[in-house]
């Protein structure tokens, strides 16, 4: 499958499509009038007025459409390295087993270790190695989707590269961004990485069982989070002991429930419109 970008890569093309964003294709976002002004020294000014991330955003929009059509809850998991993201995922996947289709896209600069850890839980996982790049992008996620089984009405976890700076800029098409902050990191993280904390919809404060052994000011941390992102949900957990995990599970179930309900409402709207059209054409025939 390569409906998104029209790029070569490792994917076989057996279909025709018009120019699409990526690899020299012309993005729909790029159509705009260009003014040109000649300079006295033979140079001219070409006005562009284009978002630098336009191409990534076009891929993200394509991913978002894919998720919406199939009612897939896609979560972008971001954190520093060592926050306990993969342990959280392993335990979450064990809980989700048998409840709905689930898959994982793992992003790391090197190795397939995390994807292997995930597969042990019985969940399909694709590893993306970003090499020197410090974040996942929407194009890579779009391709990874082709290597996963059908996920209709299920959940896709996208575990981003451990980094609180770069992933903040790159929309992957996710419905929601979950930031994991562990109490071993310091309560000032929201101040140090405001763009990432501002973007997150849910902040999981992990390793909360270690609080008695650390100088971590939880109240200060909560204040920093609320000042940076007043709308974010916050849940305190210890993924390795299970503390607080029921609240995280409830949050996930609620998000999936809302998404399925919204999808059903859209489908029922479409069905009602179809019925109306059929009624009208039936009356016309009589």
């Amino acid at each position: 499958m390569c409906a998104t970008c029209g790029c070569g890569g490792d994917h076989v093309h057996d279909h025709d499509h018009g120019p699409t964003p990526g690899h020299g294709g012309e993005s729909p976002a790029h159509h705009h009038p260009h003014e040109e002004v000649m300079g006295i020294d033979g140079t001219r000014i070409v006005r562009m007025e284009q978002d630098i991330l336009a191409r990534n955003d076009a891929h993200a929009a394509e991913n978002r459409r894919h998720f919406a059509e199939r009612a897939i809850l896609a979560l972008n998991l971001v954190s520093s390295p060592g926050s306990g993201k993969t342990t959280l995922l392993e335990n979450t996947l064990r809980w989700l087993h048998g409840r709905c289709p689930v898959a994982v896209i793992e992003g790391d600069q090197q190795t397939a270790l995390d994807a292997e850890r995930i597969r042990v839980t019985g969940t399909p996982a694709v590893q993306i190695n970003t090499g020197r790049v410090c974040h996942l992008d929407a194009h890579g996620v779009g391709h990874a989707l082709a290597d996963l089984p059908a996920l209709d009405r299920g959940i896709l976890f996208i575990e981003n590269v451990g980094n609180l700076v770069c992933p903040a800029l790159f929309d992957l098409g996710e419905a929601t961004t979950v930031l994991i902050l562990s109490v071993t990191e310091g309560e000032d993280k929201p101040r140090k990485y405001p763009a990432m904390f501002h973007r997150a919809n849910l902040i999981l404060i992990n390793k909360i069982d270690l609080l008695p052994y650390l100088r971590f000011d939880l109240d200060a941390c909560l204040t920093h989070i609320r000042q940076t992102n007043p709308g974010a949900d916050i849940i305190q957990i210890a993924a390795s002991t299970g503390q607080g995990m029921d609240r995280w599970h409830d949050w996930l179930e609620r998000r999936r429930h809302d998404l399925l309900q919204a999808r059903l409402a859209r489908l029922e709207g479409d069905a009602a419109a179809l019925r109306e059209d059929l009624d009208r054409s039936g009356r016309a025939r009589v």
């Binding site: 020299g24 012309e26 790029h30 260009h34 040109e36 070409v46 562009m48 284009q50 630098i52 991330l53 336009a54 191409r55 990534n56 020197r132 790049v133 410090c134 974040h135 992008d137 700076v165 770069c166 800029l169 790159f170």
Partner: peptide, 21 residues
Amino acid sequence: MHELSLCQGILDAIVAESRRQ
């Protein structure tokens, strides 16, 4: 170092524009 990705995005946009303009 997401600045590298951003610069690649800028360059790709410029190359595409150079063909049109």
